[in-house]
Design a binder for these strands. Structure first.
Lengths: 208, 208
DNA sequence: CATCGAACGGAATCGCGTGTCAGTTTCGGA
DNA sequence: TCCGAAACTGACACGCGATTCCGTTCGATG
């Protein structure tokens, strides 16, 4: 797949490598001081390159933050979709396992590096309207996925027949969001947090 | 209470009034173009005053956004606490009613003016670290309140005895957060959304 | 080793927004 | 009607950071 041939001259590879490094350095800076507070010079200095060089790789400041966010969004959607087809499941027990798996996957991304949720949830939406829309798109995508899982469960009869799949999906994603945000301050509560989340989903909160 | 006397000269009242108007205008601007994109001049122009005047009322740009946020946080905490003592409730049915009431109250604030959630959730956290912490504080406060309700319910026996109150509180607040965010794009779904939220809380999602 | 083009660095440019200040207006009281 | 204090105004000084540009360096090629 990556062998789409072409020159791939040694120099070309070097170039792609630096491009990659710039994206990473920008991510570091944005996460550390925030988007508006970091200058192009900061990013360049962190890599030990002149800031004029930056402009050989990216159009402008707005351009790079898009690439940084691309990267993070990719990681998240990857975790959401990888190895987890909605129709791979046919009982409630299997569904619980699958949701636990997805939950862990997200927890890993968010928990291992709190800068990821910080940037996506706290920094990005304040950059401009377009970026805020991108984040909302991400929420919508997540809602659509969750919704598909729920629909599947309703069809097979292991979830409530009268479930309002779309809105319930958003509610569930909200809980996940809440977990991600909590973990910004108390990363160690992650596990208990997602356990509580699953209990609410499956058992509700009322006494029996 | 407000009659703490003192001069309250006519001029003094005028002054407080303008101060108030500046806060409102700043809110309008921040919500419209975002914090970083609005200049003091924009705020002043909107009121038809010179921007020098602004500095007679507030120290600087950072100062005013604090006051704007104060205002919004006040509205939200007001909705969360007003007329809703945790111990005013003693059965599950009453608890459902109370939670519906609080939900409606929040829905009113967020639904009537989407700029409120947009500013609190999307704009504020990106301003600087201190502001992000303020928003996290607000989440913590909300979690503590919800937690108190849940504890009360566990003690009286109408909620599950093994409920992890703290983490469940955060999960529930997450769902509320999800609702607020959804309503940024689809305000009309508010009601269905919070209905779904309550169903998850009380009935879970599994078939019986 | 000479040549040439591409990549690099960082000094200089440019525009913008914050915050100040000195002159002007408003207003209440005598 | 007049005076002085307080409030207002907007031109201006200032700093900061994004972007440009050109002299220098690097490295491939013959």
């Amino acid at each position: 797949m990556t062998s789409s041939a072409e020159p791939v001259s040694r120099a070309e590879r070097k170039k792609q490598e630096l491009r990659r490094e710039i994206i990473d350095a920008a991510f570091d800076c944005f996460a550390e001081r925030g988007y508006h507070a970091t200058g192009i010079a900061d990013v360049a200095t962190r890599l030990g390159i002149g800031h004029g060089t930056f402009y050989r790789y990216f159009q402008n400041k707005r351009d790079i933050v898009d690439h940084v966010v691309d990267d993070l969004v990719g990681r998240v959607t990857g975790a959401l979709t990888a190895e987890n087809a909605p129709d791979a499941v046919s009982t409630l027990a299997e569904y619980r396992e699958q949701s636990a798996r997805i939950g862990e996957s997200l927890a890993r991304i968010f928990g291992e590096d709190p800068r990821v949720p910080r940037l996506l949830l706290f920094e990005a939406p304040g950059i401009d309207r377009a970026m805020a829309e991108r984040i909302l798109d991400l929420f919508d995508l997540a809602a659509a996925l969750t919704s598909a899982y729920l629909s599947h469960g309703v069809e097979l009869g292991y979830l409530r027949a009268d479930l309002d799949v779309d809105n319930t999906a958003r509610a569930i994603n909200g809980m996940i969001l809440g977990t991600a945000i909590s973990s910004l301050r108390t990363p160690e509560a992650q596990t208990a947090q997602s356990e509580a989340l699953r209990r609410v989903m499956y058992d509700g909160i009322a006494a029996r």
